[in-house]
């Protein structure tokens, strides 16, 4: 699926800003939209992340009430794969550096 991939586990070559930027952990954040049904968002979270009903519902409520929810955190390449899958379900997802790590 990826065309240009930076493996976060490799040491970046000198001057490789892209790889430096993509190192570390990234968060997958789902943004709220006024259209998708709550039950739909819960189902997508269960399907994509394997969350149980309670966790999926809690994440959905965060999206609904706070406008966003961090649904996953980890290496960039996998974060991108999750963002792509969420887009396939017509949810809007963004990636941001996980600065807690």
């Amino acid at each position: 699926m990826r065309i240009t991939s930076a493996n976060p586990q490799l040491s970046p070559s000198p001057g490789s800003e892209t790889e430096l930027r993509l190192e570390g952990l990234w968060r997958v954040v789902v943004l709220n939209d006024p259209v998708n049904l709550m039950s739909y968002v819960v189902m997508v979270f269960k399907k994509v992340f394997g969350y149980d009903e309670q966790t999926a519902r809690q994440k959905m409520l965060e999206v609904h009430e706070q406008g966003r929810s961090v649904v996953w955190s980890g290496l960039r390449e996998k974060a991108e794969a999750y963002a792509f899958t969420l887009q396939q379900w017509h949810l809007t997802a963004v990636l941001e550096p996980d600065e807690a790590h």
Binding site: M1, I3, T18, E80, F84, Q87, Q88, T92, A93
Partner: peptide
């Protein structure tokens, strides 16, 4: 046109195009 806009700002342009086509 994608129903949900692709908000990922820092994707490589070629990667973005491939994603968009597949989506």
């Amino acid at each position: 046109n994608l129903a949900a806009p692709l908000e990922l700002k820092d994707l490589d342009p070629e990667f973005r195009e491939a994603w968009t086509d597949e989506l």
